[in-house]
Amino acid sequence: MTDLVPVFDGHNDVLLRLCGRRAPAGEIAFLDGTADGQLDLPRARAGGFVGGFFAIFPPSPASLDFTAFETPDGLDVPLPEPLAIGEARVSTLAMVSLMLRIERESAGRVRICRDGAALRTAIADGALAVILHVEGAEAIDPDLAMLDVLHAAGLRSLGPVWSRPNIFGHGVPFRFPSSPDTGPGLTDAGKRLVRACNRLKILVDLSHMNEKGFWDVAALSDAPLVATHSNVHAVTPTARNLTDRQLDAIAERRGVVGLNFATSFLRGDGRMSTATSLDWMLRHLDALLARLGEHGVAFGSDFDGAEVPEAIGTVAGLPVLIEAMRAHGYGETLIRRIACDNWLDVVARTIG
C-alpha cells in the first residue's frame, strides 16, 4: 500500500448494506470482505482507502427503482413519504451498533474518530479512520435529546435531510433536469438542529438539501460549508448538484465539496449507467477546482449507495481514478489534496 495515494472519502453507505445481517455477520463481512457490494476492509486496503465518512441512513420501507422513472426527457423520481421517528431510530441505532462492533472486533484496524487529531493518528497508524455521519435526521426528536446520544456514540457529521422531507427541512428530489430550488428550507426545528450541531462541533452536510435550506444553513452556521457528496449543476443540471452561486458561497467559507461518483450526477444526460466515462468525473473536478480552488475539492464516492463508473467499480478501483487525474495533468500535490488532505483539514477546522 506504500505506493498508493491515500484516499479519505466523503460518503459511503456500507453500513446500510450490511446492517440487515445478523450479528456477527455484518462485522465479519466488513472485516473479512465480501463478494458483493463496493466497500469492505480488504478492498479498502487494496485501493488506498484510509477512511471516510460512514453514513447512517434510515431507509424508507420501499426501495426506489430510479431507472423506472427515466424518460427520454430526463428523470423525476417520486420521493418517499416522511419516515416515522420510531422506525428511523431502529435502523439508525442498528447501524451505529454495527459500526461500534466493527471497531471492537477489528483489533485496532478500524477506529471511530471524534476529532481531527484522532483522525490523523489513526491514518498514521495504518488504521481505517471512520467519521460517523447521519444522512437524514429522522431518528432525532424536536428536543434534540437523541442528538446528544448519537454525539456521545461518536457522531461528528450530520445531514439534516436526505431527499425526503422531515421535521427539520426539505431535500431535493432526484430530478433531471432541475434546479435545486425545489421548495421551502429549514423549519424552526431544523434551525435549532444546525445551531446545536455548531455547539457540539458536528459538521453539517449540505448534500441532499434544497437551495433554500442551503442558504438557511449558510446564514445560521459559523462553520465551513460542506457538501460531502455533490457535483456541479453547470455540468450536470440535476437537482442534487450545486449551482455556481452555491459553490462560490462554499469557497468563501473555506468549505469542501466531495465529488460524487454516482453516474446520474456525473453524466450530461443525467442517466444512471455504469458505462460512464471517467472524463465526466474529470469534467466535474475541473469545474469544482475553478470555483473552489485546490483546497476545496475532495471525493465523496457514495460507494454502496450508487452505481459508479465501471472503470472504478469498487473501492479497490480508486487507483484507476488517481491515474486518470495524473493523465489529465493534475500534479501529485493537488491529487493528494483532493484524495485526502482537504477532508482532513476541513474536519480539523469543524469538529476540532
Rank of each mutant, 00 (worst) to 15 (best):
D115K: 00
A153I: 02
A124M: 09
E105T: 10
T121R: 13
L147H: 09
V96A: 11
R114T: 15
I112E: 06
H151I: 01
R114D: 07
G136E: 01
D143C: 10
G126R: 10
I131M: 08
D141E: 07
V96I: 12
R104N: 10
A145P: 03
L144T: 03
H133E: 12
G126W: 09
E135V: 02
A117S: 08
M146T: 09
A129W: 12
A153Y: 13
V134A: 15
D125L: 01
H133W: 04
S97P: 02
D143S: 14
I123W: 03
M99P: 08
I123H: 10
G108W: 09
R120S: 15
I123Q: 12
R109T: 08
L144Q: 01
G126E: 07
L132C: 07
E103L: 11
L119E: 02
L100N: 09
H133I: 01
S157L: 03
A152M: 07
M146S: 12
P160F: 01
A127F: 11
L147W: 05
G126L: 09
D143W: 03
S97H: 12
G154S: 04
R114S: 13
G154I: 06
L132E: 07
I140G: 10
L150R: 06
A122K: 10
R164N: 13
R111N: 11
M99R: 14
D143Q: 13
E138H: 10
I131T: 06
V110Y: 13
R104V: 02
V149S: 08
I102M: 15
L158Y: 02
E135H: 06
V110F: 13
E138L: 02
I140R: 05
C113F: 05
R104Y: 08
M146C: 04
E135M: 00
I112A: 11
I140T: 09
C113K: 02
M99Q: 13
I131S: 00
L119G: 06
S157F: 03
E138V: 05
D125M: 03
L132K: 06
H151M: 01
R111L: 11
G108P: 10
S157M: 09
V149F: 14
P142C: 07
L155A: 04
H133G: 05
P142K: 08
I123L: 04
R104P: 08
H133A: 12
P160Y: 00
L98K: 12
G159S: 11
S157H: 06
E138A: 13
L155W: 04
P142A: 05
I123A: 02
V96P: 05
C113S: 00
L147M: 13
V110I: 07
T121P: 01
S157Y: 00
L100P: 07
G116H: 06
M95N: 08
